[in-house]
């Protein structure tokens, strides 16, 4: 009997949490846009976007290089090393670009957002804003949500582009695949609306989910050191799982059913 009660209680608590998350989102985003908030968003774009740029670019480069290396060793058995271009670019544009960017973003920017907002709560900065008649949802939460949602698709595009260049570096410059066929077969296969745009859509969905989880976990954290460390861990774990799960759903919707 006890475990049924436990199950019921934890289900109610989860639903309660989802409700609070929606309240936070609506409180933050349903507002008249102001010029001041654009400036705050740009500032946050620097924090979540520019500061994640290096890790994204380095990861993109290496993943593109590894893909070319692995792909080449398999494709060369079938004399199909010309298909290296589409293999690298399609994997990056459809899957690895959005997914790996989202995972790295959750680890780099998401955890930082959770910790920052959690600490602002623990040190009463959020309460203090409220008492100064400044809504922390609009002043603190909203610019961070917008910045996260804008930054991640940008990072994913940069990731894919650098990965394709990295694939070129290994496949063409090192392993000797013909440069012309690397690009031309890629061009014959990759389609703008099907591959690039779908990748961007995935990335926007991931961006919303990861940023939302990260900020809500910080905003809802228990304001103690354990609470914030727990919230930071949960941000990384929950958003990674959400990204991978959603990726399957989105892939099935976009590419699975013709």
């Amino acid at each position: 009997m006890n475990w049924v009660i436990g199950l019921g209680a934890s289900t109610l608590a989860k639903i309660n949490g989802v409700g609070r998350a929606f309240l936070m989102l609506s409180g933050a985003l349903i507002a008249v846009p102001q010029l001041k908030n654009v400036r705050l968003t740009i500032q946050q774009l620097y924090v979540v976007g520019v500061q994640s740029l290096l890790i994204i670019m380095v990861s993109g480069l290496f993943i593109g290089m590894v893909m070319a290396l692995q792909g080449y060793t398999i494709l060369v058995n079938y004399g199909a090393e010309g298909s290296l271009g589409p293999m690298v670019s399609l994997s990056l544009l459809r899957e690895l670009g959005p997914v790996v960017t989202a995972l790295l973003f959750a680890g780099r920017a998401g955890s930082a957002l959770t910790a920052e907002i959690g600490l602002m709560k623990a040190t009463e900065q959020l309460s203090s804003l409220e008492m100064m008649a400044v809504d922390p949802l609009r002043r603190v939460v909203a610019p961070r949500i917008w910045a996260g949602v804008i930054a991640m698709p940008m990072l994913a595009l940069i990731f894919s582009a650098i990965g394709i260049l990295g694939g070129h570096l290994v496949g063409v410059d090192w392993l000797g695949v013909d440069s012309g066929s690397y690009w031309s077969i890629m061009q014959a296969t990759v389609e703008w609306d099907k591959d690039v745009v779908n990748g961007i859509i995935k990335s926007i969905v991931f961006a919303i989910v990861v940023t939302w989880i990260a900020i809500f976990k910080g905003y809802d954290a228990i304001p103690t050191s354990e609470g914030i460390s727990l919230a930071t861990t949960q941000t990384v774990v929950f958003s990674s799982l959400a990204v991978l799960g959603l990726d399957f759903v989105l892939t099935a919707l976009m590419f699975g059913i013709n």
Binding site: Y46, I162, V190
Partner: peptide, 29 residues
């Protein structure tokens, strides 16, 4: 703030460059 805005500007330029690379070099024309 000037430095922040400059870096965000560079970020935007990088994104545009990446998009152009995808549009012109990767996607079938």
């Amino acid at each position: 703030t000037r430095k922040t805005e400059l870096m965000v500007g560079i970020f935007v330029i990088l994104t545009i460059a990446a998009t152009l690379l995808l549009a012109l070099k990767v996607v079938n024309q």
